[in-house]
Design a protein around this nucleic acid. Sequence first.
DNA 1: GATTATGCTTTTGTGTACAAAGAATGCAAA
DNA 2: TTTGCATTCTTTGTACACAAAAGCATAATC
Lengths: 251, 251
Amino acid sequence: MNEQLQPLKKPARPGKAGRSGTQDDIVYAHIFEAILEQRLAPGTKLSEEALGEIFGVSRTIIRRALSRLAHESVVLLRPNRGAVVASPTVEEARQVFFSRRMVERAITELAVQHATHEQLNELRQMVQEERDSFSRGDRGAGIRLSGEFHLKLAEAAGNAPLVSFQRSLVSQTSLIIAQYESGNRSHCSYDEHMQLIDAIEARDAQQAVSLMMHHMDHIDSKLNLDEESASDDLHAVFSHLLKKPKASAKG
Amino acid sequence: MNEQLQPLKKPARPGKAGRSGTQDDIVYAHIFEAILEQRLAPGTKLSEEALGEIFGVSRTIIRRALSRLAHESVVLLRPNRGAVVASPTVEEARQVFFSRRMVERAITELAVQHATHEQLNELRQMVQEERDSFSRGDRGAGIRLSGEFHLKLAEAAGNAPLVSFQRSLVSQTSLIIAQYESGNRSHCSYDEHMQLIDAIEARDAQQAVSLMMHHMDHIDSKLNLDEESASDDLHAVFSHLLKKPKASAKG
DNA sequence: GATTATGCTTTTGTGTACAAAGAATGCAAA
DNA sequence: TTTGCATTCTTTGTACACAAAAGCATAATC
């Protein structure tokens, strides 16, 4: 019960926090990671006090982190009833994918125009990390890194509102993949990511957009949204009743 | 300086006033309105304690409202230095407009497919209100209602992520208009709004999108982003130095 | 035996106190 | 007069305490 984590002064893996180390961001990043890597299942309740004890901070900090996650639709904040990990329905997943196609097309076109060689090299590095994760068999990290690639690409496009929207969409997509993708079909998105970078660097807008759209198709086709939608939808809807609380400290 | 506002005390009972009535939302809405209607100028500092006293609530509530506004990029939250009303630069304005064209196109296409007659009637009512505001000479309310029209249209499109993004874009657009539109050119967006509704109701996607794009062009052309960009940009950049604090209770 | 009522516990919502980081002001020296 | 420094003062950041609401279990009644 008293397995409290290190006092957060030094995050175990500092590389993940988007910004440098305010407690706020660290807690946010850790919960975010845990959700995307499926260490926290959809529907799991996120108690403020429990999280506060785990991270060694007060509920104030936890609350802000949860609020931020809620704004990205990664957790659901129910008034007077606390926060739970979101369980996107099939319909919600479809809406997210619709928006993503729209945004990714725009981002790709802008990236062809604006991305610098330096940015493209950073993207290549990220793809390398992504590949490493998959060859390590670390599926959770792979999903997360794949998402971070798309976010970085948005940054290279140089449109701030788009980046912000993409952040939310990528988060939700990761959650959807974690929930709906059949585990054995390996993701393999890194190959497509690499081709995409090449097309962008060649400033071939048509080819880049085409690759991106196919990439979206592939992600889509790996999900069980179409065939098994009925059963999976039910599972998602009632997952909060099933109560599989994988509280991080307890295992 | 004890000019405390009454309105918030109105729900003398701190009980449940439904979903719209939490103190939180009220404070958020009031500040939001004040900003969009230009009663709070860009760059104005938003002190937590002062606002708390004005609205008769603790800093906790104010802080949450500011955080929410910050997420919509309507206020800027500077660490350890408090919140100020955002002053979008010309470049930021351009980026917002780029995103809006993209989103509005998608929303229009979806609305043609999904909007119900009831929704379209509600939209017509909103346009009526908008027209009334302008004929009353209430420019601030007009800007706000015009924004709310576009938000309602997004809801009629039936895509949740898009609605969320649109909310942020509309807020920023209102701020941009408030800052960059020359005052004498009346907005007159309600006519175009009405035509748009008609095209949507006729399920004429091509016509609706065309009208929407022209509408965007018109909004764009009324701003001083192109010609006077240099001077206005400088003004925007340094507006926080000029300090025109129109504290809401006094003005 | 089932169902509803009621108090008990747990968890969230809000206010407030205290600590820390900036900003402002005044003073001294060049 | 101006510039640099130090002190003071204001404002934000965090923790904590208390209040209110929801959930849970028990018990009583039909």
